[in-house]
Computed example of a mutant assay.
Amino acid sequence: MEFLTDYAAFALKLISVALVIGVLLAMMASGKRKSQPGHLSVAKLNDAYDAMKAELDSQLLDKKTLKARLKEKKKKEKLEKKSQKKTPNKTEATEVVKKRVFVLDFDGDIKASAVETMREEITAILSVATPEDEVIVRLESGGGVVHGYGLAASQLQRVREANIPLTVCVDKVAASGGYMMACVADKIIAAPFAILGSIGVVAQIPNVHRLLDKSLIDVELHTAGRYKRTLTMLGENTDEGREKFKQDLEDTHDLFKRFVSSQRPQLDIESIATGETWYGSEALENNLVDSVMTSDAYLVSHYDKADVIQVTYKQPKGMAERFGLSLFSALEQKAVSWIGKLTQTRGY
Rank of each mutant, 00 (worst) to 15 (best):
K305M: 01
T232N: 08
G280L: 03
E95V: 13
E282G: 06
M180A: 08
D213C: 00
L151W: 08
S16E: 12
I269Q: 00
A335R: 06
T130L: 06
L4A: 12
E321H: 05
K317I: 00
S262N: 07
K53T: 13
L234E: 03
K75E: 14
P37M: 08
K71T: 14
K187N: 13
I269F: 01
D109A: 10
D62K: 09
S16Y: 10
P165G: 08
V20A: 15
A11N: 09
S295D: 07
L196D: 03
G150A: 07
F102A: 05
V202R: 13
K81A: 14
Y298I: 00
G150T: 09
F259K: 11
T167L: 03
A152S: 05
V201G: 01
K334A: 12
T130S: 15
K98F: 11
G235C: 07
G241N: 07
L255H: 08
E140D: 10
R229D: 08
K86S: 12
S337C: 06
V308P: 01
P131M: 07
K63V: 10
L104W: 04
L212N: 09
M1P: 08
P316W: 05
I122F: 01
K63Y: 00
Q59C: 09
Y298D: 02
T167N: 02
H209D: 05
T94Y: 09
D218P: 02
R346P: 03
N89R: 12
N286A: 14
K244W: 11
K75Q: 15
G31H: 07
C183I: 05
N46K: 06
G324L: 05
T343S: 10
W338T: 15
I272S: 02
S261H: 04
H302N: 09
T312K: 14
A93Q: 11
G280I: 03
I125Y: 04
A48Y: 00
S141T: 02
R258V: 01
P206F: 06
E120W: 01
K314I: 15
L104N: 05
A297I: 04
L66M: 08
L126C: 05
I269Y: 03
K81R: 15
L234C: 04
D47L: 11
M293R: 13
A152E: 02
H253D: 06
L45M: 15
S291Q: 10
